[in-house]
Design a protein around this nucleic acid. Structure first.
Lengths: 194, 194
DNA sequence: TAGCGCCGACCGAACGATCGGTGCGTCGTA
DNA sequence: TACGACGCACCGATCGTTCGGTCGGCGCTA
């Protein structure tokens, strides 16, 4: 592909169309958003949309892949693979919140899929894998004696994921102290008594 | 209306139909579930469904009201209105988890509405009210010096709600120690370091 | 207690609207 | 003139909803 071909008339590149689509999906929900809604929001006709994407599910798939890629990048970073289980866990939580904010609309969409289509089931499976990696790390930290065993490690892992993921419900893009705040809440209590 | 008239032939009461519908809604998502899906799951025809409910949204509305009622019942209980802010907060968290498990499918549906219809916007507004009551209580507890101010009270309230609500993603009905476990995680940390 | 009239529960068929998707022509630029 | 970007008109399928009608058990009356 030549640069000229890519930049010919990029008034509506696939990238910007995907962004528009994901925003609409998050506002109305994927199933409740029609292709006509999308094209209206993008300022082109429905058929023009099909010039850039194979279909509605292709849009969803692209968005979900972007979210999944972001999340797994956190697991592959240095801080997630070196050090004690607890240190790695803290690093991952911070990184996960960072990705969550940086790729907010994409991750938001990911966290809402129900498994109706093949793409959604694929995303669900990858999420399961991600959560499984975290649960394993929690178990390691407990076995290493770094963490108090107040509840089952499996339950703790689920609550941890729930806490972190709930951030998409109200987070706003831009720099903040959110990653550290969430990590502190997770490891020292959201509302620790004096 | 006589009792005999009401109990004439209750093979498919509105109650059981609602239960079936909510289950389907949670599996596929509200918008992705057709009235034909519902009637197939209920064992009656689509048109028969309209004999018991005014329409698809009426089903949603009934389910959302049930969930909302359950949640606000917690706020009205004795333990939520007497004692120190921290004590009341702990009581509410436990009670909220209890309702969440007892009315699992209804609350699950509630936590997924996006505001597409009038009923959904109503439910969203009630949820906002509920969360506001909790946020106010968190602020009180901080001002009373019962809680350490690690993060902004407003942020802490959001994380608290996120933690509690995330339970619907994996909870199973039936008795358990979940309410206490969640409360402990919220106030003492999900993964407290030794 | 026999007969009648009523009503709730239910169904098959169809409605207009909207869905995701397509075929084909036009426009602008290289 | 070749090609990518785009729009108009339209497709079959499915959506939520409605309508006309059937069935059978119950209460009332004679």
């Amino acid at each position: 592909m030549t640069n000229a071909a890519r930049a010919r008339r990029p008034s509506h590149g696939p990238g910007s169309l995907l962004e528009v689509a994901v925003t609409e999906f998050n506002t109305r929900g994927y199933d409740a958003t029609s292709m006509e809604d999308l094209s209206r929001a993008a300022g082109i006709t429905k058929s023009s949309f099909y010039h850039h994407f194979a279909g509605k599910e292709a849009l969803l798939r692209a968005a979900l892949e972007r979210a999944i890629d972001g999340l797994f990048t956190v697991l592959d970073s240095d801080g997630a693979r070196t050090g004690s289980p607890l240190t790695r866990l803290r690093h991952i939580v911070r990184g996960q919140v960072e990705v969550l904010v940086a790729e907010l609309p994409y991750v938001t969409l990911l966290l809402r899929v129900r498994g109706n289509t093949e793409s959604e089931r694929w995303a669900l499976e990858r999420r399961r894998e991600f959560d499984g990696r975290i649960a394993a790390l929690v178990r390691e930290a407990v076995e290493a004696g770094e963490i108090r065993v107040g509840v089952e490690p499996a339950l703790a892992a689920r609550l941890l994921s729930g806490l972190v993921n709930s951030v998409v419900e109200w987070a706003r893009p831009g720099p903040s102290t959110l990653p550290d705040d969430v990590a502190r809440a997770a490891f020292e209590g959201i509302l620790p008594a004096r």
